[in-house]
Design a binder for these strands. Sequence first.
DNA 1: ACAGTATATAACCTCATGGTAATATAGTTG
DNA 2: CAACTATATTACCATGAGGTTATATACTGT
Lengths: 101, 101
Amino acid sequence: MIDLERKAKVFKALAHPTRLQIVLLLAAAEEKCVCEIIPLVGASQPMVSRHLAVLREAGIVASRKKGLEVHYRLTLPCVAKLLDCLDHACTRDSCCAREEL
Amino acid sequence: MIDLERKAKVFKALAHPTRLQIVLLLAAAEEKCVCEIIPLVGASQPMVSRHLAVLREAGIVASRKKGLEVHYRLTLPCVAKLLDCLDHACTRDSCCAREEL
DNA sequence: ACAGTATATAACCTCATGGTAATATAGTTG
DNA sequence: CAACTATATTACCATGAGGTTATATACTGT
């Protein structure tokens, strides 16, 4: 069991609609460069850059340079499942079915 | 799909180690009164009360009065699974197996 | 009604966060 | 190397969150 501080950090990084949107985009796309993300989420360039930094520091995404562009990808693909999980939690009330533990 | 704002609120409510600990306690116990939670999480009475209010406002817990005591329970039991999910995400990297969607 | 217990709320401080506009950095192209 | 593009960082402001202590509320038992 990873410690509560660490988990809290992951949740904190996810605690913003724009960052959730970015996670969804990356979950659907393998990899996206910042210049694609900016118009899709409709936030300013500096804000997108900072949101990405928050996600990166939480270990949720990683980046690689490709020429001028920086491409981001999910490194914790499970978070996309968490979102899906939550959808189901809020409509019916069981989700993420895992029998053991 | 519930909207991003709503999901962000749930994540925000979970973005604190003490609140995560409370969620774990409630996940294991059906229902606990505040006076039991306080010594278990080792925070002050007002802080526990406020953390519980945050969780309540996010729809994660609910309360009922029983005499002098106030008893809290999980209303979004899925969140306990999210925590478990995250444990597995951080060690191996797949979790929350759901084939459809 | 009074004293006591359990919980919630308020007042206050400090620090973190989200936001904007301006600037720096790094790579590309002529 | 100068001009350009993509991204990151900084400075700054306003707001919100976490924390403490003090106080209010609500119920209980006498």
